[in-house]
């Protein structure tokens, strides 16, 4: 059986869905964060799959930008989580409920 572009796209969609569901049901900020990274990597896979199917370089090029953005997001996200963890050693997202109307 030949592995076509569709296989990669379906795999990427599955990864993206896993990440989305993870963000919606998990409660630890670090795990939420990993789920978002999973979603971004799924998108990267989609770009590569489309890029090789369509030919041309813009698909592969987009991956580099996506990677850089993901790295920058990690830096900012971990900084925020660390800033909070210093005050609240248990970081479950449900504990953060000072803000409500």
């Amino acid at each position: 059986m030949e592995v076509t572009t569709t296989w990669y796209l379906v795999l990427a969609a599955a990864l993206f869905t896993t990440g989305t569901v993870g963000v919606l049901i998990r409660r630890n900020p670090l795990v939420l964060f990993m789920c978002v990274e999973l979603m971004l990597n799924a998108v990267t896979l989609t770009f590569v799959a489309f890029g090789s199917a369509l030919g041309g370089l813009s698909g592969q090029m987009a991956v580099f930008f996506a990677l850089v953005v993901a790295a920058a997001e990690v830096v900012i996200g971990l900084a925020i989580i660390v800033a909070i963890a210093r005050r609240h050693p248990t970081t479950a997202i449900d504990d953060f409920s000072t803000l409500r109307g």
Partner: peptide
């Protein structure tokens, strides 16, 4: 807390 929610 606002930043964490905004970020995620």
């Amino acid at each position: 807390e606002a930043a964490l929610k905004y970020f995620i």
